[in-house]
Amino acid sequence: TTEYTFTDDEEARRAIEELKKRGLTFRYEKHGTTWRVRVD
Score class of each variant (00 low, 15 high):
Thr1Trp: 15
Thr1Leu: 11
Thr1Cys: 13
Thr1Met: 12
Thr1Ala: 11
Thr2Pro: 04
Thr2Phe: 13
Thr2Lys: 11
Glu3Val: 14
Glu3Asn: 05
Glu3Lys: 03
Glu3Trp: 15
Tyr4Trp: 13
Tyr4Ala: 02
Tyr4Met: 08
Tyr4Ser: 02
Thr5Ile: 15
Thr5Arg: 06
Thr5Tyr: 14
Phe6Asn: 00
Phe6Ser: 00
Thr7Arg: 06
Thr7Pro: 03
Thr7Leu: 08
Thr7Ala: 06
Asp8Leu: 04
Asp8Ile: 04
Asp8Pro: 01
Asp9Gly: 08
Asp9His: 07
Asp9Ala: 12
Asp9Asn: 06
Glu10Ile: 10
Glu10Arg: 10
Glu10Tyr: 09
Glu10Asp: 12
Glu10Phe: 09
Glu10Thr: 11
Glu11Tyr: 04
Glu11Gln: 11
Glu11Asn: 06
Glu11Asp: 10
Ala12Gly: 04
Ala12Gln: 01
Ala12Cys: 11
Ala12Leu: 14
Arg13Thr: 09
Arg13Val: 07
Arg13Ser: 06
Arg13Tyr: 13
Arg13Lys: 11
Arg13Leu: 13
Arg14Lys: 12
Arg14Ile: 10
Arg14Gln: 09
Ala15Ser: 04
Ala15Asp: 01
Ala15Arg: 04
Ile16Gly: 02
Ile16Leu: 07
Ile16Tyr: 02
Glu17Val: 07
Glu17Ser: 09
Glu17His: 09
Glu18Val: 09
Glu18Arg: 06
Leu19Ala: 04
Leu19Asp: 00
Leu19Ile: 06
Leu19Pro: 00
Lys20Ser: 09
Lys20Cys: 11
Lys20Met: 12
Lys20Phe: 10
Lys21Ile: 08
Lys21Arg: 13
Lys21Val: 07
Lys21Ala: 11
Arg22Asp: 05
Arg22Ile: 08
Arg22Glu: 06
Gly23His: 04
Gly23Pro: 02
Gly23Trp: 02
Gly23Phe: 03
Gly23Asp: 03
Gly23Gln: 04
Gly23Ile: 01
Gly23Thr: 02
Leu24His: 07
Leu24Asp: 04
Leu24Arg: 05
Thr25Asn: 11
Thr25Phe: 11
Phe26Val: 15
Arg27Asp: 08
Tyr28Pro: 02
Tyr28Leu: 12
Tyr28Phe: 11
Tyr28Cys: 13
Tyr28Arg: 01
Glu29Ala: 07
Lys30Asn: 04
Lys30Ala: 03
His31Gln: 13
His31Glu: 13
His31Trp: 08
His31Met: 12
His31Thr: 13
Gly32Gln: 04
Gly32Asn: 04
Gly32Arg: 02
Gly32Asp: 06
Thr33Val: 08
Thr33Ser: 13
Thr33Ala: 10
Thr33Arg: 07
Thr33Gly: 14
Thr34Ala: 06
Thr34Lys: 05
Thr34Cys: 07
Thr34Leu: 13
Thr34Ile: 14
Thr34Ser: 06
Thr34His: 08
Thr34Gln: 07
Thr34Trp: 07
Thr34Met: 10
Trp35Tyr: 05
Trp35Cys: 05
Trp35Arg: 01
Arg36Ile: 15
Arg36His: 15
Val37Asp: 01
Val37Lys: 00
Val37Tyr: 01
Val37Glu: 01
Arg38Ser: 14
Val39Leu: 07
Val39Phe: 05
Val39Lys: 00
Val39His: 02
Val39Ala: 02
Val39Pro: 02
Asp40Pro: 08
Asp40Asn: 11
Asp40Tyr: 15
Asp40Phe: 15
